[in-house]
């Protein structure tokens, strides 16, 4: 501890680590700054890119609130997946662009996390064609899902519905996060600009208020750049 540090210095240094300050900040400061400097929700899904590496092993992270928020509702969701295991495998093998897909229940949400190759809309379209009935079974249990089922008859609306529930993927670098905010606000300024990098913490806090659920980073890959088809082919698994 430096010798010239007074009691008030020590208190203020300690303050941000306390639960009390974090609660007060959450109740008062965050709503205040959200009102003063409104932040729009950032769209979900992978960032658009033409580059090969960005179009394989893409992530989809859906969080879908269940209609029945109780163990009954969660059991219904679990049953819907368990009853369709064969259909899911058949779809997976037929589509051939999925590295993995997981259904997870978190609280009263049924979540679908998957890693797939290629275009998002084609990915969903392919699965509607192969396992549309599984989607129907799951989505019928989810808030707002009735409007888009049966998905085979509401293809475009269903794709949009899924996209709206796909989590925003916070970029790997803090400055790319700032660029996302600027792009959403139509700011495409180039140097020289008049930014204030010290506002980054507040911008992040307010963004996480607008997008409470996010995916952190673009994913950490052991073998980036390879499609599911390439992996299966090189491992001699057939495709």
């Amino acid at each position: 501890m430096p010798a010239d540090e007074g009691l008030l210095d020590r208190i203020v240094n300690w303050l941000p680590t306390t639960l009390g300050f974090k609660r007060v900040a959450s109740w008062i400061l965050v709503p205040y700054w959200a009102h003063k400097t409104p932040v729009k929700p950032l769209p979900g899904g992978p960032h658009a890119s033409f580059q090969h590496g960005d179009n394989v092993q893409c992530m989809m992270n859906l969080i879908m609130p269940l209609k029945v928020k109780s163990p009954i509702g969660r059991a219904e969701a679990a049953l819907a997946i368990a009853q369709n295991k064969d259909a899911i495998y058949a779809g997976l093998n037929n589509v051939g662009t999925v590295h993995f897909a997981r259904f997870v229940i978190v609280g009263d949400n049924i979540c679908m996390f998957s890693v797939y190759d290629g275009d998002f809309t084609n990915y969903i379209r392919d699965f509607i064609a192969t396992i549309g009935q599984v989607f129907n079974a799951v989505v019928s249990l989810v808030e707002g899902g009735d409007d888009v089922i049966p998905c085979e008859e509401n293809v475009e609306a269903f794709i949009q519905w899924v996209h709206e529930r796909d989590l925003y993927q916070v970029p790997d670098t803090p400055t790319d996060f700032l660029r996302d905010q600027e792009a959403l606000n139509g700011d495409r300024a180039v140097s020289p600009v008049n930014d204030d990098l010290t506002l980054l913490p507040r911008k992040l806090v307010l963004q996480l208020r607008a997008n409470p659920n996010v995916s952190l980073g673009s994913g950490y890959r052991a073998y980036p750049g390879y499609s599911a088809a390439q992996v299966r082919e090189r491992l001699g698994l057939g495709w």
Partner: peptide, 8 residues
């Protein structure tokens, strides 16, 4: 930076 999705 280059994206983390590049071959490594």
């Amino acid at each position: 930076p280059w994206p983390g999705t590049r071959l490594r």
